[in-house]
Write a protein that binds this DNA or RNA. Structure first.
Lengths: 203, 203
DNA sequence: TAAAATAGACCGACCGGTCGGTTTATTTTA
DNA sequence: TAAAATAAACCGACCGGTCGGTCTATTTTA
């Protein structure tokens, strides 16, 4: 797991790429911006990536990999599904608070996905995997009797969408509602819809 | 309310602009594309709009105006708030089904809002107004006793986010879940969280 | 073991196409 | 017939990608 020189360079490039992407978006981001931000040269960057597009596609890999470690950990931990969901929400709230850049970048990738099939396919894969994770939690909850018998796929979709709504706060004025406050309310809201009521549990 | 020649021309331009925007996104959309799509000339377009940016900013106005007619109608109709919310959801589902283009364009405007303060301000205004509409419905519901005493702003935000999630389906594969099916489930979900349970109503 | 050879990493000036916007000429309208 | 509207040729800043070349570290050779 120790990084080679090449991995370090790629990190260096992708760090710069993310920063530029968030500031300017895909189209307006210049390879020369990445050159400057990364303190490397154009030649160096094109040594590691054959095109602007390849570089940004790899940026998705980079972040998926980074997040998936914790995500898998949450799913595999030995906790009641309701707690797992809470952890999931909390993880994204914390991540967004400590560094919203990847979230902002996601908006840009959405926009890219609309135009470019390669970006679409890549994002599709990311989402499919993420949805499967959530669905897994839901299934366990339903199976163990903690959750109502809901449609796992639709519920997972809904949860995912609500997590993504974190982004709304990065961009717009919410008139006095904080992200944390909002997300906590949403978490309760979703869990209220999922958890069996006490009477039902007994029967 | 009858349209002048100029209004017609602007419609013609903005129709083309939307079409191009959806296909290529803001940056990759060429004014020459709009020229071709609108069957006009560059001179004509720059006669009505002083820049690419102005044109696209006006595209937002165009659609806000178009939607706001029905939206206001829904809020002002004499129906129980729960029904108003259902109508709201239904309206967007129908709109998306008959023509998803404006929804796709919204993703692009999100991306624009991140980079350009003018787009951000404009979208902020749109969202603020829309949130106020929803909040108004919520308030009435709470006041009339149909709804629980929820935080109007947060609930409105949540509803809006869920409506926007329609877009997810335009872009990605949901593995067998249809937009309509999804949205109907979500509507029920939200209303379940909002409506007082029968026992509570009686007391 | 010093010189020669090779490979990998990196540099940055430069080229060629692109596209928002301008200009100028022409046609339509009132 | 003057103003409004439209047409289309044109300008030039801009930027992704290229390429000849350098620099450093490792390996081979004699």
């Amino acid at each position: 797991m120790n990084k080679t020189k090449q991995d370090i360079r790629k990190d260096q490039i992708l760090d710069a790429a993310l920063s530029v992407l968030v500031q300017k978006g895909y189209e307006r981001s210049r390879m020369d911006d990445v050159v400057q931000e990364s303190q490397l040269s154009k030649g160096a960057i094109y040594w590691y990536y054959k095109s602007k597009k390849e570089m940004y596609l790899d940026l998705i890999n980079f972040w998926v990999l980074r997040y998936s470690v914790t995500l898998n950990h949450i799913v595999e931990e030995d906790a009641p599904p309701s707690q797992q969901l809470k952890d999931l929400f909390k993880y994204f709230i914390d991540q967004n608070e400590s560094d919203p850049q990847p979230f902002v970048a996601l908006t840009e990738f959405w926009s890219m996905a609309q135009k470019d099939p390669d970006f679409r396919k890549k994002l599709q894969k990311v989402y499919t995997h993420f949805l499967e994770l959530i669905e897994e939690i839901i299934y366990r909850g339903v199976h163990s009797g903690e959750f109502k018998k809901v449609n796992g796929r639709i519920t997972a979709l809904s949860i995912m969408v609500n997590i993504e709504s974190i982004n709304w706060f990065t961009l717009f004025e919410a008139h006095g509602v904080s992200v944390t406050e909002y997300m906590e309310t949403i978490t309760d809201f979703i869990l209220a819809g999922l958890l069996k009521k006490h009477e039902e549990k007994i029967t």
